[in-house]
Amino acid sequence: MNVFRLAGDMTHLLSIMVLLLKIHSMKSCAGISLKTQELYVLVFATRYLDIFTTYFSFYNTVMKIVFLVTSFSIVWYMRHHKVVRQTYDRDQDTFRHHLLVIPCFLLALLINHRFTVREVLWTFSLYLEAVAILPQLVLLQRSRNIDNLTGNYVFFLGAYRGLYLFNWIYRYMAEKSQLRWIPWISGLVQTALYADFFYYYIKSWKKREKLQLPA
């Protein structure tokens, strides 16, 4: 495993830890999109099906379990925890996320590496992950007050896929890995969706001002 891949995984893990910290310590999910979190549950559930069938490494298995358990528990907190769920911005989080699922699935049926159940679901998870942040970005744009933990959560989440791009370049150049257009293009789209957010995040960080996205 190269340094970009490890850094990417750690940033991903960090983003989830930041979100859980917010939920546990502030007992709040204000500014967090339940729609995005539900999409992540679907992403991980379809991608990590192979946890029961193929063994890669101890690291791989543990990380998959962590991502599955944490994504399910975040959704549980937002839906069912008696304090946390009251902080959910239901009226602002109106993105129709179901509309993202069907096109991603159809695309996975059409464009995949191999037409098997596992491969189509894996591909579907890549396409869906690429756009899963959209409800969250829309919610951030509507929020007047973005607290630090929420801003950092989205920043780390975006940084994770950005680092994966470097990982893929490294693997292609140094490890002579094959051309893998499906994850590369999905990852590029995913990272590009954060461009605007990154711009305002870094700007506010430099000026030490509170993060606010223009409407």
């Binding site: 891949r5 995984d9 991903h12 192979d50 193929t54 890669f56 490494s57 791989n60 990380m63 998959k64 991502f67 590496h113 491969e119 894996w122 994966y164 990982n167 890995s177 094959q178 893998r180 994850p183």
Partner: peptide, 10 residues
């Protein structure tokens, strides 16, 4: 083997 390389990422 090819599948293994594809799927070892998270």
């Amino acid at each position: 083997e090819e599948d293994k390389e594809e799927h070892d990422e998270l």
